[in-house]
Structures are given as C-alpha cells and as structure tokens.
Design a protein around this nucleic acid. Sequence first.
DNA 1: TATGAATGAGCCTTCATTCAT
DNA 2: TATGAATGAAGGCTCATTCAT
Lengths: 209, 209, 209, 209
Amino acid sequence: MTSQLPAEPDTVSRADRRRAKRIEDILRIATSLLAERGYAATNLDEIAEVLDLSKASLYHYFPSKEHLILACLDRIGDSTNRQLRAVAASAAPPRDRLHEAIRAQVLVLTRDEPAGSAIFIHDLGLPEAARNRLRELTEQHDRLFRSIIDEGIRAGELHVPDPAIARLLMHGAINFIPSWYHRSARMSPEQLGDVVADELLRLFEGGKT
Amino acid sequence: MTSQLPAEPDTVSRADRRRAKRIEDILRIATSLLAERGYAATNLDEIAEVLDLSKASLYHYFPSKEHLILACLDRIGDSTNRQLRAVAASAAPPRDRLHEAIRAQVLVLTRDEPAGSAIFIHDLGLPEAARNRLRELTEQHDRLFRSIIDEGIRAGELHVPDPAIARLLMHGAINFIPSWYHRSARMSPEQLGDVVADELLRLFEGGKT
Amino acid sequence: MTSQLPAEPDTVSRADRRRAKRIEDILRIATSLLAERGYAATNLDEIAEVLDLSKASLYHYFPSKEHLILACLDRIGDSTNRQLRAVAASAAPPRDRLHEAIRAQVLVLTRDEPAGSAIFIHDLGLPEAARNRLRELTEQHDRLFRSIIDEGIRAGELHVPDPAIARLLMHGAINFIPSWYHRSARMSPEQLGDVVADELLRLFEGGKT
Amino acid sequence: MTSQLPAEPDTVSRADRRRAKRIEDILRIATSLLAERGYAATNLDEIAEVLDLSKASLYHYFPSKEHLILACLDRIGDSTNRQLRAVAASAAPPRDRLHEAIRAQVLVLTRDEPAGSAIFIHDLGLPEAARNRLRELTEQHDRLFRSIIDEGIRAGELHVPDPAIARLLMHGAINFIPSWYHRSARMSPEQLGDVVADELLRLFEGGKT
DNA sequence: TATGAATGAGCCTTCATTCAT
DNA sequence: TATGAATGAAGGCTCATTCAT
C-alpha cells in the first residue's frame, strides 16, 4: 500500500517501523526504571506514565510484565555480546584482547547502556524465567573472558595463581562500576575504560610471582 | 536498664533476654530473606511464617517494615565495621593492614554473614531511609580503606596510578563474592580470604609501572 | 432496498450478499461461543480470532457486544419459532400436534442449533436487554405449547391435574437435552425426537387418573 | 482458655465459632450471587459489599475466587446428597422411594437452597476445577436415582421404554424448577414437591405401554 | 471495509498496617 | 505478648469500545 515499487524490498511498512520504535522506547524506559528500582518495585503504571501511554497499552507490545523485562534483558545482553564478539574475533595477542574486552565492557556499562547495566549486577526479585535468561547471557559473557584468559596464560602473557577467582573478581569490579561512575564524572567513559582495563590487567600480571 | 528492683533482677532480665533473642532471630531471618529477594519482593508474612510467628507480632518488635530493614542493615554494618576497626587499629605496615582488611571483609561476607551480605551490593528498591543508612555504613567502610591505602601510598608500599578508582574496583570485586562463592565451595572462607587478598593487592602494587 | 440503480444491481447485491454472509458467520460463531462460555466469559477477541477477523472489525457489523448477543438470540428464536409455527398450523388432533411440537423442538436443539440452544437454558450473566428478549421469545414459545395443551384437555385427549406445572416440567426436560445429548450419541436427533415426544406425552396422559 | 471443664469436648472456641459463622455467611451470599449472575459476572466486590466487608477480607477465608465457588458447590452438593441419602436408605418400595427422592430434591431446590440451586443447572463460564467438582456431585446424584429406577423396573413397579432417557428428562424437569417456581408462588414447596413427584412418576409408569 | 493502536473501567490479588481480644 | 480479623492502597491484567489510517 505504501510502496509501489515492483519488488517489495522493504516489507517494513510505516506501521511496522512505528511499532518497532514504540517497542524500542518502551524497552529503554523500562530498562532504566528496572535498573533503578528492581523488578518488584517497578510498576507498569510508572513505565506507562513516563512514556505518556496508558498501562493497558503496554499490553499491545508485551504480554506481561515478565515478558517485558525479558526483552529488556535480551536487549542489553545482545548489545554487550555484540561488542565483545568483535573483540573476541581480533587477532591481537591475548593480553591486548583482554584489555580491549574490559574496555568494551566498561563502555557498554557507562556509555551505551548506563541505565540498564545495573540489572546484570544481581537478580534480586526477578521471576524465574528472567533469572534463567540472565544466567544464560552471563555465561556467554563468562565463556568469552575465560577463553581469552586461558589463552593468555598458555601463551605466558598472563600470570595468576587462581585464574577462576581472578576472573570473578574482575567481573565484580567491572559490574560495580555503574554504581559509582556517575558520581565521579571527572573522566569520560573512554578514559575510564582505559584506566580500568590497565588497572584490572594487574590482576592477571603477577607482580613478584 | 529496665529493672530498678534489685530484688527480682532475674525475672526482668529473663524477659529482656528473651526479647533480645526474638529480635535477633527476626533480624537473622529477615536479613536472609531480604538478601535473597530484595526489599519489595520480601513480605512480612513470609518472615513471620519462617519464624513461626504471626505477622502482627512482628509489630511488637519493629514499628514498620522499613524499620525492620534498617535494623538488618545496622546489624550487618556493625558486624562488618567491628571486624574492620580491629584491623584499622593494628600497628602493622599499611600493606599488611590492607591485606588484613580485605581478608576480614571476605570473611564477613562468606562466613559470618553469608545471608545478608547481598544487601550491600545494591540498593534496588530500598526506601529512601534505608538507602541513606546504607550509604552511611558504606562510607565508614570506604573511609577506613581509603585511609589505609593513602597511608600505604605515602609510605611507598603501594603504587597505583589512580587510587580512587583502584579502591572502587576493589570494593566491587569484594562485594560480588557472595554471588559466586557458594558455587565454588572448593575452598574455605578463610582460604578464600587469603587468596582474594593476595590477588586484590595486585591492584595496588604496580607491576612494571 | 439498498440499490436504487437498476444498472448495477449485481454489484450492490454481491456486496450485500457478502455482508449477509459475514453476519451469518459471526452469529454462528458467536452463538456457539456464547452457549459454551456464557455471556460474561465470552470476549470479542476470541470471536474475532475464530473468524480470522480483527476485534475492531466486528463493530462494522454490530454496534456492541450486547447487540451481537441479541442478534444471536433472535436467530435461534426465529429458527425455533418457524419450526413450531408449522406445527401450530397443522389440523391434526391436539395430542398429535403436541407430539409433533415436542419433536420439532428436540430437533432444533439437537440437530439444527446444537450450539446455541444452551443459551435458552438460563440467562446467567446476560445484560438486561438480552434477558428481556429471551423472555419474549420464550413466551411466544410457551403460548404455543399452552394453547395446544389447553385444546387437548378440552378435547379430552390429554389428562393432567395441573397443566401449568406439567408444561413447565416438560419445558425443563426438553431444554436440558442439549446438556446430555452429545454424550449418548446412540441415537439420531430424529430418533431422539420421537422417543422424547413419546415419553413426555406421558406427562399429559393420566395413568390411572 | 474459654472452657475450664476437665476434658476439652468443645475445642471449638468462640473465635472458631465466629469464624465458622462468617464462612457460612460468605458462602450463603456468594452462592446466591453466583447462581444469579454466573461465575464470570460475579465479582468479589459485590459479595463483600453485601456482607459489609472489604474485598480483601474475603481472602482471610478463601484463598481465591475459585476456591470460594468450590466451597459453594460443596455446600449445596452436601446439602442435596444428605437429603437424598436418607431416602435411599429407606426400605419402602422403589416406586415410593422414587417419589420421595423427587420430592426431596424439589424441596432442596425450592425451600432449602433456593438461591444456589441454579448453579447446578449448568456450568457456563465456571473454571475447570469447579466444573469437575460439579460433575462429581452430579454423578453421585445420578447414581442414586439410577439405582432406584433400575430396582423399580426389575421389581415390575416401573415401566418405561428407555429408562436412561426418562431419567435424564426427569432431571431436566426438576433442575429447571427454580427458574420458574418463584413466579408462581401459589403453592408451598411441600405442595409443589408432591405435585411434581406425582407428575414425574408418570414418566416411569407406562400408560398403555 | 479492515485493523492496529489506544484507553478507561473494572477485576482479582497482595500487602503493610491497625485493632480488638 | 500474641494473633485473627479487617482494610485501604496498589499492582497486574482483561476487555469492550473508539479512532485514525
């Protein structure tokens, strides 16, 4: 109806695009409120109000609160994993790849998805399904870091007595950044990414060891 | 305090003791449920049921849900700070004091208060007052670590380009431990404390830098 | 009625026919869902979905849910009354006419309108207007049976101490058939009609009386 | 606490009795509204309002709307079956027992449980569990009548070509009584019971057959 | 004619809190 | 102290209805 062009390349009609935009808006707002208040304390009324929408309208896009939050998780998870996959594909030496991965992660948390990243910190009060989804996403994540670290150790570039624990400490350190970064805006996300990556690499580079 | 009659000190103190024990029980259960589900998703019914008490009875000990959670925070905060103050008072060199402080903190999180420590990770959904209390407790905490680290740097024992960020990363790494420790029970809290302290000290001990 | 242009009678009537067919489809589906679930438990979404139509489209054919259900009632009522009027016009003796009327009624309920007949059983949850319509239809019905029965009594063909109650019992017995007939499919609607008519005539034919 | 008598024969304290009464009240009101409007169209607000209670209070007695209605069904079902069991135990000849059973049933529907009996007519819109419960109760019922009728036929007291259908017609006739009885209050429930039983026995007593 | 979007009103359910016993 | 009862407020979800396209 909209397109009169012979083929139908953009099956995405105006309506489709509008709908996609609405969904994107909802997810953005929902993610930020969710990250700010947690699942149980976030109510659809508030999400709807911020969007200047009625609560009932949300149900045109998501069949339940739980599905809405699952979509939020997916959105952030995809965003993160996309960034990290690029790093993983690099041919750089492991140490540099680890540096780059940390940096990428920091950028996602502080620049790309400052709102939603808190969700990943922990799963308090999330419904089962969401908790499982979260676990899946986290595991993809972990696998990627683990493989880089293992490689670095085998290559002799990294030295650490207990790689598993070092990695977990690193994740904790990174995941916690959103909870303090906004306060000390004395450096840009990019600068922070570099500083943090430098610093956390120390966890894997034996001093005297 | 309550009894002014020397004649029957036991009667009164027995009641007091009983009450104190009740409160202690409530706080223990409440803390663990709170840590497990978050503030909004924890209901008084459940707390009462675990205690084999009626919900209404809780109000004999705490005037509101919010006060209950404040008491939980205080209890953990006190426990933590007590441990840390001992470390702070030590005359050992800063590097060793930092090691000890990290170790003490890990022990609190994994051994002494495994249940409640998650509360400190994040304040999702907490009411304002609780959030403020949390901030105070955290600040005491931070001050203590900060002073040790500063001292260590002045003494030339620690080297780190950005002490503030290093410390925040360290806190994140520590705070996150409860979320993964139960899975890898391959070492005791004490062993973990040593390993973690060793590892995190690297953040403050320049490799080549 | 709609077309004033003799030139294109087909065009208009084709549209009309299409519309009539649509309405017929809607009524058929709506009637069966209504009979199955009751008024309050039936939603337009479901009706629309079965018809592969959007809910909003239903409003092109019926101004409201209530009007839709009124049309359903009318459709079944007409069907029933058409059958019965034929019986009423017959010149057969009252006893045979009663037999025939019962038989016709059974056929409507089990063969012609098996889906919708449950609506007539009871008016649970129906809106006022629908309830009134139902009453009207039922009364036409009742009048017809009543007149046959009265005639039969006057003619000495039927004997019953309390004709009013006997008739009401008969209606109950008939109306209830749809709720059990599908289970005992051991006889056809036609056979059932005969058996039931024979049996119910006993209500009006004194044994010893 | 209330009773100081040696044994504790009436463990039912005052509180217990009060609670039982409340439950009884709720069931009575709920049953009548349910019978009047059907499941879907009955809302807890209304039930609560009639009881001069808040809707939330209902949840002290029943965990859900569905459980409430199940309790209603049980209550009526028990009442009915209790009456009928007495009849079944009688040593009277089958014909008299059938007469008595019909009479008892009519009394339940018109005198003892005039409100709730409509529920048994059909199950439009009831949730699955309730529908199943209804079926169970109905089956107890049916078994009882069936056994009397079979016995009567074997004893040569009853004559009917198709006993199954005759019985179903009888049930329909009886079940329908509540829908018209209130209008014709020209006779008492007891009188009605006799008239109806006399009349319906004709279904099982062949005229010429 | 057809429909996606939007929504107000309403319903079931939960929960912190109060109160009488 | 202990608790059953009661409730207002709130939250998730449904649905008939309207409207712009």
